[in-house]
Design a protein around this nucleic acid. Structure first.
Length: 566
RNA sequence: CGGGGUAUAGCUCAGUCUGGUAGAGCGUUGCGUUUGGGACGCAAAAGUCGGGGGUUCGAAUCCCUCUACCCCGACCA
């Protein structure tokens, strides 16, 4: 590509509300332009990168035996009513009407459509297993779109859906998809982790997320330094403590804590560590409120709590009125001692090992010190309720957990029969009977990968593309082409041709900008290799090369350059 | 959904409190000087001040209203 024939549109300034590096750099490099909230145009430059990612994903899906198709982005209401998701999906579902007032949605995902396709197309067990995928634009009406294409409303996604007659067959395809994803992210040159994920309300047997590690990530993941164990924080199990509870030694005493409503203020007021305090949360349960107890330095894991039989779903903290009615005090002074028997006291495994602890006094402005389980108060149930923290033992018994931030770019999921059941997707088995199919689904956020890669790989000058994603591998920069001798321009042109003929994607910067502008642009848009052609070098018969991550350029011959790029 | 903020030149933003000639930087166009790390000079084009309504002799500025966009929050005791 000759840049003089391209539309490169870098800018110096970006809106103050572009907060994260990838968003700012994509705007500055001119990869995307915002059309409306959560909607972006991909410029020619941005599209080159997006297509690179798409291509690698497509190649690896094909290699893993998935078959590409393309479903409509607009989907009829009736299909979504069959699975009950027309109502259940919530505000993220963009609903639209046609001229006849028929209702549709812009597809946020395609389980309904693919299952409808499968129930019509697949008749016999002999057609299974089969795995269909598409690369399609999706729309989710996010509450708060932000960070550019990272959390946009319209985005490009690869989604695959596999169909099986047995769990074993599903497990095989699941494993193949997992391996395909490992290949995709490895080829893209990204630092990532495959982590165990919570399979959510849908149920199912297995789920892994592929997380690109980046400090700005919206997800928190835990991984072991002594094994392959890695899990989303939501899912990560806090290993059962092996120690036993120390004996009670302190007498139970009530102390005045007039303003100490938080663990932090309580601990500093009493001169103790937060881990000697007990945190008691009152949440809405199936029948009245439920008390959840954690060590003061731990945090409630909402996913774990949401699975408790005593709770109707994700935990919702009780209101001040409910708390006053249930235990006669206000937030900040709640404790398990003396709670009515009707309130279950569910205690985290680590909190259950506390002795001589501090907890709320259940009257305004007081706490107990020297409190002890059994002696002073009851426990209804002991379970894992907390988020793991840095330094916890890995739940598989090998190594120590570390916490990192990640950007979810892929998700593989054993769906089971939820959609097949709702849509009656069956095939005839060997004995001639209709059998519900079992499904898996596998997503990759193509457009999000572009942002995630930049998030992981950039410096003060701009983007640093991995070779697999870069719009061009090499930039040939001509110094002062308008006034240089014909020999300089000819040499640049010849080098550009030679590189292109070797199959190396090359961009020739023949715009005639001043060198500083040209170099800054090439660094901003992240081209991995830069070659400068000038009078100076031409006289010596050499080229000047600089890698994107190198701080100094070096002199090379043309052959050395080709070897470098081979 | 609740709270807050913003909307002025292609872009990034001043100007609004205290009503009186529409501003800057960057970018763009032209001319000239420059030419190895975001050059310099001169000249120029470019704005229904988000839309509508009101107050006023006079509104970017005050009031009402609508729209769009952004941020924070949705309760960890």
């Amino acid at each position: 590509m000759r840049l003089s024939q391209f539309h490169l549109a870098t800018v110096k300034e970006v809106p103050a509300d572009a907060e994260i590096a990838s968003h700012r750099l994509m705007l500055r490099a001119g990869m995307i332009r915002r059309l409306a909230s959560g909607l972006y145009t991909w410029s020619p430059l941005g599209l080159r990168v997006l297509r690179k990612v798409e291509r690698i994903v497509r190649e690896e899906m094909d290699r893993a035996g998935a078959i590409e198709l393309l479903m409509p982005s607009i989907q009829p209401k009736e299909l979504w009513e069959e699975t009950g998701r027309w109502e259940k999906f919530g505000g993220q579902l963009l609903k639209i009407k046609d001229r006849k007032q028929q209702e549709f949605c812009y597809g946020p995902t395609h389980e309904e459509v693919i299952t409808d396709f499968a129930r019509n197309e697949l008749k016999s067990y002999k057609q299974l297993p089969i795995n269909f995928y598409q690369i399609q634009t999706k729309f989710r009406d996010e509450i708060r779109p932000r960070f550019g294409v990272m959390r946009a409303r319209e985005f490009l996604m690869k989604d695959a859906y596999s169909f099986h007659l047995s769990q074993e067959s599903l497990a095989e395809t699941y494993a193949a998809m997992y391996q395909a994803y490992v290949r995709v992210f490895t080829r893209l040159g990204l630092t990532f982790r495959a982590v165990q994920a919570d399979s959510g309300a849908i149920g199912g047997h297995g789920s892994h997320e592929f997380q690109v590690l980046a400090d700005s990530g919206e997800d928190t993941i835990a991984f072991s330094d002594g094994s392959d164990y890695a899990a989303n924080l939501e899912k990560a199990e806090a290993r059962a403590p092996t120690a036993s509870r120390p004996a009670a030694t302190a007498p139970l005493q009530k102390v005045d804590t007039p303003t100490q409503k938080t663990i932090a203020s309580l601990a500093s007021f009493l001169g103790i560590s937060p881990r000697q305090c007990l945190k008691t949360l009152l949440v809405r349960g199936v029948n009245g409120v439920v008390a959840l107890c954690l060590r003061g330095d731990h945090e409630l894991n909402e996913v774990k709590a949401g699975k408790l039989a005593e709770l109707p779903g994700a935990p919702v903290l009780a209101s001040e009125e409910e708390i006053l009615a249930a235990c006669g005090t206000r937030p900040g002074f709640i404790g398990p001692l003396g709670l009515p028997d009707s309130i279950p006291v569910i205690v985290d495994r680590d909190a259950a090992l506390m002795a001589d602890f501090v907890c709320g006094g259940n009257t305004y402005g007081t706490h107990y010190t020297g409190a002890n389980w059994d002696r002073d108060t009851r426990i209804s149930r002991i379970t894992d309720l907390r988020n793991v923290v840095e330094g916890d033992a890995s739940p598989d018994g090998h190594g120590t957990l570390h916490i990192a931030r990640g950007i979810e770019v892929g998700h593989v999921f054993q769906l089971g029969q939820k959609y097949a059941e709702a849509l009656h997707a069956t095939v005839i088995d060997e004995s001639g009977k209709a059998q519900l199919m079992t499904m898996g689904c596998y997503g990759i956020g193509i457009s999000r990968i572009v942002a995630a890669a930049i998030e992981q790989r950039h410096d003060a000058a701009g983007i640093i593309w991995p070779e697999a994603m870069t719009p061009w591998r090499v930039a040939v920069c001509v110094i002062n082409p308008k006034n240089a001798s014909a020999a300089v321009n000819d040499a640049a042109e010849a080098l550009y041709q030679a590189l292109s003929q070797r199959g190396i994607e090359t961009v020739l910067d023949d715009r005639g900008l001043r060198p500083g502008n040209m170099f800054a642009d090439m660094e901003l848009i992240g081209i991995p290799h830069r070659v400068v052609v000038s009078e100076r070098g031409l006289a010596a018969g050499t080229l000047e090369y600089r890698g994107r991550e190198e701080s100094e350029s070096r002199t090379v011959s043309q052959d050395e350059l080709f070897a470098l790029l081979a």
